[in-house]
Amino acid sequence: MSGFRFESVTKTFGNEEIFRELSLQGAPASFLCVVGKSGVGKSTFLRLLGGFDQAEKGTITIGGEQVTRPQKKCPMVFQSYEQLFPWLPVWENIAFPLRVIGVDKSERRNRAMEALQAVGLEQDAKKYPHQLSGGMKQRVALARAWIAEPQLLLMDEPFGGLDMMTREVLQDLLISLWREKQWTVVFITHDLREAARLSTDLLILRENGSWEMKKNELSQPRDPYSAELNRWIREIEL
């Protein structure tokens, strides 16, 4: 698990400055949620970190190494269902990162089955993505992202299109997996309740290019509807 660092990063979009001199650090095994109003630059932040986009000024490092392009040790879970390969059955989608590094078929199969169990989809190993519900698809994407022991897990509003109940179930799953595997996670959401439940750290991006980092010291377990949590949410200015 790696930490990451932004040093004086400035990113412009046309005439607009999305971040100005953004400098922050993410500790290893931390869970950073990035929140902010729509269009403020949350996805851009994640894409810069993931190497899918480049900043005009400043440096971004992961585990001390500078980020220039996407890396397989920093997998991203996208919001779009197109992230799964429709021509591969579920277990092969999940095992894909292992195939890329040359793991042989039977070991891939075993590890994929383990991952499927962890996300509760053992029954659906041979199905094709188009046969799954939205929630199931995102579980598959999640399993794929952590199967190859990532240094950093990037998640771009992965539960965005799902209903409340499914979201909560997936949040529970994510928390328990994260506790076990101790990944460093950067998670974008527009749902403050979700951020309250999941995060150890919170990054608030604001419209004028400014930003604020906060620690999340809510006690565990975090009931999504507790008074404490609601208070915490109200104190956040977007």
Binding site: F52, P70, K72, C74, P75, M76, F78, E82, F85
Partner: peptide, 14 residues
């Protein structure tokens, strides 16, 4: 090809 799919492939350095 869908952009996301391409980005996944970039992500896994293929």
């Amino acid at each position: 090809l869908p952009q996301t799919q391409q980005e996944v492939a970039d992500n896994y350095e293929i």
